[in-house]
Design a binder for these strands. Sequence first.
DNA 1: GCTCCTTTGAAGATT
DNA 2: AATCTTCAAAGGAGC
Length: 353
Amino acid sequence: MSQWEEVNHIMANMRRTSSPSDDLGSTDEVKIFKDEGGREDENISSENLFEEKSSLIDLTESEEKSVEISTPCGPNRMDHDPSVFNMGYLVAPYSYPNATIGGLPATIANRITLYDSLPPPAHCGIPPYQLDSKAMGLTKQAMYSLHPTQYPHPMLGPPDLSQIGSWHPPSVYSPPSSFSIPNILNSVHHRAPSNMIGPHHLPLAPSLKEEYDQETKAPTVNHRYSKNPYNKPASKNSQRGNDEKKPHIKKPLNAFMLYMKEMRAKVVAECTLKESAAINQILGRRWHELSREEQSVYYEKSRRERQLHMEMYPGYVLKNNKRKRERTAKNAASTTKSIESESSSSVYGEMKK
DNA sequence: GCTCCTTTGAAGATT
DNA sequence: AATCTTCAAAGGAGC
């Protein structure tokens, strides 16, 4: 069996253990699994997966020892600690939930990581499973290995060293004093086609910026689905016919989403993989490989998107969809009833009344 | 055609 | 206050 086939086999196993009708395979279970720090899972034939992945690990490790080239889908950090492969696809690429920092409880560690003047850890990622070059259909050297001297995207240029050690958690509540919608628009229009915006020369993500541009010409209500305000949400809300009077307002993208949106095409081109789940794993790993300075670019963009979103939709309130919660809460309940419940509780972003 | 997968982060909901 | 849950994007896969 080739390595590529092995990877596919692993992914097929994942699907088999998570059929839509099987709640055990839902996202919820994965999250629980993550939270428990990779505890042995008696359900998911982990032994088989372990063996399969171990073989991949062995192969790749031996390759990496002989050839010091990062994998096409990102450098592999795991050669220092092979054990972290054990849970492969089934665990988060890093272990925040139960991880500790300096022996601190996980919750405190997370607080420090997230709020105490530090960005999320950029170097504690764990590849979910071994992505070897052959499996990715690549034998060439990685284009985006993110070596300190390599910046695959102009945005990810050499970091501003002055920022090192002075990370400030991005907050939508403390925008730069110079930030304002008119500033953004002026910058956008005057700098076109450059994507750089504002005094910080940070690009606003195409999503909101372009949509905002569109809306300034022909205002629409749904910013991210201006052309078809009902396309995506429709798939998750089949009772859309009843809701067509109040278009769905999507959430602003967070930093990682912005990063994914920007880098996805490159990773796809690099890896020949098309399955988004696998691509996202790669992107997740790369996200953690970014330096703080590189990540801060996206946090700043995200902050600006949220700020702009707030300006555009002052009354916007995201209401969580209780569908999954209800589904897991009442396993015994009939599916039909659940759908009915969903219809009444499935609310996406909407405006305050 | 709908849902899942998979990632991180923001924010509402729940405990 | 702490924890849990959902949803943002993406597109292939399964039902």
